[in-house]
Every structure is written in C-alpha cells, then in structure tokens.
C-alpha cells in the first residue's frame, strides 16, 4: 500500500524527467548520421517493394481480378501502410538491457534516483516521435511521387482509431522486449528469444502477408493477440475494411495486454534485480 503511495508521489518528478531522457536518447541515436538515416528512414522499405512485385506476378499468373477480396492495388496499399506502421514499432536492438545485465552495468540503475521505467518510456517516446516523423515523411514522399496510386486513410476517424491501436500496440511490443531482456537475469539466451519473438510476431501481425489471405481459422486465433491489433488491424481500419465494433474489440485486447505486460514487466524487473543484488556481482 505504502509503496503504491510512494510511487504515486514520485510520479510528477518522473514525468518531469521524461523529456530529458528522450532528448538524451535522441542524442545517442543521431551520433552516427549515415546509420541513422538508413535505419530510421529506409527501415522496412525494401520488403514491400519486393512483395509488390511478387503480388504483381501472382495476379499475372492467375488472371483473376482479386484474391480474397483484395485487388492488386489493395494489396499494394496494404504494403504501404504496413511499411509505415512497421517504422513505428520499436526495434528490439534499441533496448540493450540484456547486454547491460550480462556486463554487470545494471548496478547503476540501482543507485539512480529515477525509476528504470522512466528511462524506458523516455526512450520509447523518443523512438516513437522520431519514427512517427519518419513514417509521415515516408507517406508524404510517396504521396508526392505517386499521388493517385498512394493510399489515403478512408476517414479521419479511421486514422485516429488506427493511431490509437498503434500507440498501445507499440507499447506492448516494447514491454515484451523488456520482459525478454529481463530474462537475462536468469538465462543467457535472450538474444535468440528476442529473435524468435520477432519472427513469430512478424507473421502474426500480418507484416509478412496479410492476415486476410491466411486460412480463416488462423485469423480467429490471431484476433486475440496484440501483434495483430498493432499492424494488421490498423491497416485494415485505414483501408476501411474494419469498423467501429472491431476497433472497440481491438482496443480491449490491446489494453488488457498492455496492463498484463506492464505488470509482468514490473515483477520480472523487481525479481531480477533482487536476484542480481543477492548474487552480489
């Protein structure tokens, strides 16, 4: 009880620190210019380009006008939106916590007068701000070059709904990375676990291939997981294929996941630190 109160009391201070942390992270991220431009702006672009050609080849070979209700143009729009959204999903490499745990640098967080979670969300804010800019720049550039071919959100409401889902969903991603990183307190296999998560999540989120093209039973399963609601569902909202009822359901799934993951993250971090301090490295 008292811990909760102490936490609430320190909250304003932590919030005050948030922009500073974000600025610091920005500094780190821009230390290497070429890498920054390539990673921030072009990340996630090559695959959709190749996939566009794959879809083109598919439509050429069947001669059909649409596959599962998607025309070629719809699929390209799907790819464009996925690419934009993918930019906003944090890269697990941006969280180097596991390495810090292995190398024993974590002790510094034990003595800092700020909760690690503030640092975490500071980093998240910085990342999201930069990536939103990158995604917007990507969209504008495309719209300028390819105007009528380029997808537009069906409505402002859909855009707002998609953004809401995306914001919550990226938070879920970050928390998952965080939890997996924290496993470094116990295991030395974090790197492969994170990769494994990325491979599976990429498929589940519809990033590799639209969920609509998958067998219907698969879709039913994916609809209760957060990767689906972070990528595939916002794209379908933007394309006007999902409605307000879907949005409300997705919001519920994401909110539940977010709260559950946050709780889990908190517990893992606490336990891990205790174990860490107990070992006395």
């Amino acid at each position: 009880m008292s811990r909760a109160r102490a936490l609430a009391a320190s909250l304003p201070e932590e919030l005050h620190l948030l922009p500073y942390v974000a600025a610091y992270e920005w500094r780190k991220a821009t230390a290497f210019r070429a890498g920054f431009v390539l990673n921030a702006l072009l990340r996630g672009v090559p695959r959709p380009v190749v996939m566009t050609l794959v879809y083109l080849a598919m439509f050429r070979s069947t001669g059909a006008a649409e596959i599962r209700g998607y025309t070629f143009v719809d699929l390209v729009h799907f790819l464009v939106w996925t690419a934009a959204i993918q930019k906003c999903i944090p890269d697990w490499r941006s969280l180097d916590l596991a390495e810090q745990i292995f190398d024993g640098y974590v002790t510094k967080y034990l003595v800092m007068p700020v909760s690690y979670f503030t640092l975490l969300w500071g980093r998240f804010l910085q990342f999201t701000a930069v990536q939103l800019l990158a995604a917007a720049a990507f969209w504008c550039a495309g719209a300028l070059v390819l105007h009528s071919w380029w997808p537009q959100p069906v409505s402002a409401v859909a855009l707002a709904q998609a953004a809401t889902l995306l914001a919550l969903g990226t938070g879920c991603y970050l928390l998952t990375y965080f939890i997996l990183n924290c496993l470094a307190f116990w295991l030395d296999v974090v790197w492969s676990l994170l990769n494994m998560f990325m491979f599976v999540a990429a498929f589940m989120s519809g990033m590799l291939v639209p969920v609509a093209l998958m067998p219907r039973a698969v879709r039913g399963v994916l609809e209760v997981t957060f990767p689906y609601w972070t990528v595939n569902a916002p794209v379908e909202l933007l394309l006007g294929r999902l409605g307000p009822a879907d949005f409300r359901f997705g919001l519920a799934v994401l909110a539940t996941s977010f709260v559950a993951l946050h709780g889990l993250a908190f517990v893992t971090w606490r336990r891990g630190l205790r174990r860490y301090a107990g070992v006395g490295t």
Binding site: A23, W26, R27, T30, A31, R33
Partner: peptide, 16 residues
Amino acid sequence: VRGAGTLGILRGFVRR
C-alpha cells in the same frame, strides 16, 4: 565534434 545542447546536436546532424 558535437555542439552542446539540442541546437548543437541538430546543427551537427546537418553538417558534421
């Protein structure tokens, strides 16, 4: 070399 402060960083980002 990088300038101090946010402005310095931004400037450094444009011209190193």
